[in-house]
């Protein structure tokens, strides 16, 4: 439990909690990018440089931008929202709190977590690339297929059908 971990953890939790609680949806996404950046910093702290930088690139650079675009496309000006939370917010909050309680209890009572930090493994990007090309080549190919399918699928779903009939 170092000071840097505590600061990053606090930042991440504050960002994500604000993202789930703020009124303005764009503010939520901006707060969320803070949380994502905090998680990326935690990855860097754990020595996973490649994953941390990929996290920033994908979440801050792409997902957040996509989300704000979607929010602005679906926002109706002058629409007075009664509440940002749905009508069953009590049940949802209770479920989430219960899940956290169970997980925290499991973590606190587990004996597997009392480990010392092993020495920093030597993970270069080259090793990750080698692993991706040899041992994990099939998942990588499937990943590429999935991303292509998702790209085409997203365009087809979001395309305005009225344009075609005109």
């Amino acid at each position: 439990m170092t000071a840097s971990f505590l600061i990053l953890a606090l930042l991440t939790v504050a960002g994500t909690a604000a993202a789930m609680g703020l009124r303005n949806a764009v503010h939520c996404v901006l707060a969320l990018t803070l949380g994502f950046a905090g998680i990326a910093a935690l990855y860097l702290q754990l020595g996973a440089q490649f994953v941390g930088l990929a996290q920033i690139m994908v979440y801050v650079g792409a997902v957040a931008i996509l989300a704000v675009f979607a929010i602005m496309m679906t926002h109706k000006p002058g629409q007075a929202e009664a509440s940002v939370f749905s009508s069953h917010w009590i049940a949802g909050g209770v479920v989430a709190a219960a899940v956290f309680a169970v997980l925290a209890w499991a973590i606190a009572s587990s004996e597997a977590v009392f480990q010392l930090l092993p020495p920093q493994p030597d993970v270069t990007v080259q090793k990750i690339g080698d692993a991706l090309m040899h041992r994990f080549v099939l998942p990588l190919e499937i990943m590429g297929l999935l991303l292509t399918a998702a790209l085409i699928g997203a365009v087809v779903i979001a395309m305005d059908r009225k344009e075609e009939t005109k």
Binding site: A17, M20, F85, S86, G92, G93, V99
Partner: peptide, 11 residues
């Protein structure tokens, strides 16, 4: 838990 709470309670 925060993500779950958001997914379950936001409109």
């Amino acid at each position: 838990a925060v993500g779950l709470a958001g997914a379950l309670t936001r409109r």
